[in-house]
Design a protein around this nucleic acid. Structure first.
Length: 184
DNA sequence: GACCGGATCCGT
DNA sequence: CGGATCCGGTCT
């Protein structure tokens, strides 16, 4: 059984945690089916006092989990057909989240999870995966260390994609030259 | 109760 | 570059 990253990993500054998620593994655990894994190759940070953050205007039913403890999932529905997956950072009551933008999937086409909507489609992540405690080893959704990618990659930092407010913050990180990044 | 735009993706 | 497709947030 894979060992999830500890809450203390997530319970830090969003801007520190985000690039450190690169190279980690997302694992979808199921008793009935074989586990599915994907390597995180692209992320974006959304922080407190960030106009692009869903929590920018305070707590609502949708973003409530962002005000809770770190290490939980935040999954939301967008454009009438896609879901996006985030992990919550920072201490309780301080909103912060990291959008997972692309995964490299072992033994699959490079582009099968090369975007936030595509990776949820591939992993069948829906609103049912919202508010899961990903630090609990029995959670259907966890993040683990990975042996597949070690430290032999370089990280590129750039502006975030697809937003208008806060568009100038350079809070997107991805693995250089990785073929599964959303916009290569 | 209505309106509107969105942390996207795909085909043209 | 436009269309798909629908929910949450905001205003009335």
């Amino acid at each position: 059984m894979p060992k999830p990253l500890k809450r203390s990993f997530f319970e830090r500054s969003t801007l520190k945690v985000a690039p450190e998620l690169l190279g980690k593994s997302i694992v979808i655990q199921s008793k009935k089916r074989k586990n599915k894994t994907g390597l995180i190759v692209e992320v974006e940070a959304y922080t407190n006092n960030d106009p692009a953050c869903h929590a920018a205007r305070g707590k609502t039913p949708r973003n409530e989990v962002m005000f809770g403890p770190a290490g939980f999932s935040y999954v939301y529905f967008i454009y009438g057909m896609y879901f996006c997956l985030n992990f919550i950072t920072e201490k309780k009551d301080i909103p912060g989240a990291i959008l997972i933008r692309a995964l490299e999937i072992p033994d699959e086409d490079n582009r099968i999870a090369s975007g936030p909507g595509k990776l949820c489609r591939y992993l069948k992540i829906t609103k049912d995966h919202n508010k899961l405690d990903c630090c609990n080893s029995s959670s259907p959704l966890i993040v683990t260390e990975s042996r597949l990618l070690k430290n032999d990659f370089s990280i590129v930092q750039s502006k975030r994609i697809g937003i208008s407010q806060g568009a100038n913050f350079p809070w997107r990180w991805y693995i250089k030259d990785n073929p599964s990044v959303s916009k290569p």
